[in-house]
Design a protein around this nucleic acid. Structure first.
Lengths: 339, 339
DNA sequence: CTGTTAGCGCGTTCAC
DNA sequence: GTGAACGCGCTAACAG
């Protein structure tokens, strides 16, 4: 606000280009946007003037005039989590061809912060909005619904969306993990996880896991959750604590790969052989999981695809449909070498 | 472009709030922006009307009218690299209080793509621009200089910036690593790295390392670089290849922690004891480095701080100064347990 | 194929 | 402490 020099200097405007090429502003506008019929000769003259002046269109003005910005709001709990970074990459990739720009807001896993972020993104009149997760405040939901813009809620498809849901069923993944491990002969299951308030999807997987165990007459022989975000260090410490508590699992299911890699490290430090002494199972299919001395057994999710499909489902797809749409991007259970 | 329903529906405007509260538009505007003198009673009436209508200011229009947007362009080579994700987190944190919004463009390590990204970000009339790195096309430089907006080039401070540089000296870090390891008694150095075209900072560190070794009468006994991005898997494979080539280093310096963790995994798989058989040194100070069975010896850089300082140096700081500014965010050499 | 007219929604003057 | 007029830079409708 203290800034003075908000002067454009010699920034070229549409009018400058028009004058230089001897046509009207609207003609230049049409050439620049590749819209409407233009005589080849005119186009060339205009293009030359554009190059000469170094004209860069003011999209702020353009968006205001056409009451439709090429901005897409993206609301993520975190960007330093590789999972969301991958999603963002997918969104970028899908948006680039149409000239749309993602504008990212970060909530830090806080619903009230999400409300503030959504409000502030909405102020830029975005063409669409992509949010990670389905748990919003009432006010957030109201803004999203009233906004009339397309909205994608991504990462899981276990909940009914406002408009479009893109992701995978985490509950189903949890069930598949249980089935797979039971089939492999494991019986003494333990769980090592992180904060469910921050990551409801981890809880959905847990529920699926425990449900299916129960159907097989099994239950967890041990369980440990850290009251914070997942991390390699947390995984290492939680598995150490679990083992110290006297539990004797033959397999440990982790809330995700970060935690599982930490568990792997605990095994190395404690002289336990992963799989032979204790089997390990993760979730996400991160690169590092495949680089461990023994390839981590895990579930590979396609985060980039989630971002791509979400973006593609929203831009240039017309109005919000009557019935919510569900897009399942699936997952692959990778047997690996640690379970 | 195919979208029909770009209709605002019943979106409340400044005029609606004004009518409802019985004052003029400009008064509402002042209340909403907390600017100018307002009678407490008026403010309250207006605020009530704002709440009632659910009014959200149109920042597009606001920016156009005041010819100054609260957007900050951020140009990054990648978002799925934790290093840049951390930087982005810092930028977000520093920008949030002043209501500025970062708009991110991703170049995928391509200079021509950077040019396109910069052009398209400039079209949103950002208040400032933050770019990772110093190597731009001539056209990119020209746009940045002509734009009159504040520009930060971040990550290293080994090159003269257009306006502000924020980061650390990678060449100096390379020299410090060499000095540290020589002091610890290591003599047979090897290097395992990744693509220098994508990451010039890795090369600066390499240069510093080799220079200092030479001053001590030493040189690398082995060296391996993958022609692609860094990754745990690449680190593992490159160290394996290096050892297979017959080199017998007593310490391996990696281009970064990802590569070093991969090297650690190779040691485990090959039955080599990290440090006792072969010492390992990384760069960045990632969380995972501290979670390994032996804490990785590395250099901790403060990526979030880089983002914060860059953002703080630009917004609300007036015009571009005559002389470029250099902000050194420093680094800490962490001795660790692997070297 | 090209131009004219009339805003988009708000903030900056100034005046009162 | 409040308001009226004008314009930010561009594009949607029409004409021609």
């Amino acid at each position: 606000m203290s800034g003075e020099g908000r002067d454009q200097g010699n920034r070229a405007l549409l009018a400058d280009v028009a004058r230089l090429s001897g046509v009207s502003e609207i003609t230049v506008s049409r050439v620049v946007r590749n819209k409407g019929p233009i005589a080849p000769a005119t186009r060339e003259r205009v293009l030359r003037a554009v190059a000469e002046t170094g004209y860069v269109p003011n999209r702020l003005a353009g968006a205001l005039a056409s009451s439709g910005s090429a901005l897409v709001g993206v609301v993520l709990p975190s960007v330093s989590n590789i999972v969301f970074a991958d999603v963002l990459r997918g969104i970028h990739a899908a948006l680039a061809p149409s000239g749309h720009q993602p504008v990212v807001g970060v909530t830090d896993y806080d619903r009230d912060e999400e409300e503030r972020v959504v409000r502030s993104l909405l102020a830029w009149q975005p063409a669409a909005m992509i949010l990670a997760g389905f748990e919003h405040t009432a006010a957030t939901r109201a803004m999203l619904i009233a906004g009339r813009i397309r909205v994608a809620e991504i990462m899981d498809i276990d909940t009914a969306p406002i408009d479009v849901a893109v992701g995978l069923s985490h509950r189903r993944a949890g069930r598949d993990i249980a089935r797979h491990l039971i089939a492999r002969g494991y019986r003494r299951f333990a769980y090592v996880g992180h904060d469910w308030d921050r990551d409801r999807r981890a809880r959905l997987r847990y529920d699926g896991l425990v449900e299916t165990l129960a159907e097989g007459g099994l239950s967890l022989v041990g369980e440990r959750r850290i009251a914070g975000p997942s991390s390699t260090l947390a995984g290492r410490e939680m598995l150490a604590a679990l083992m110290a508590s006297g539990a004797r699992p033959d397999v440990v299911v982790f809330s995700n790969d970060d935690m599982a890699v930490g568990g792997y490290f605990h095994c190395l430090a404690a002289g336990l052989a992963p799989r032979d002494d204790i089997a390990l199972f993760g979730f996400n299919g991160l690169d590092i999981a495949a680089a461990l001395p023994l390839r981590l057994s895990t579930v590979r999710t396609n985060r980039m695809l989630i971002g791509e499909r979400a973006a593609a489902a929203l831009v240039g797809q017309g109005d919000r449909p009557d019935a919510p749409e569900i897009i399942d991007t699936g997952y692959v259970l990778e047997a690996g070498e640690t379970a």
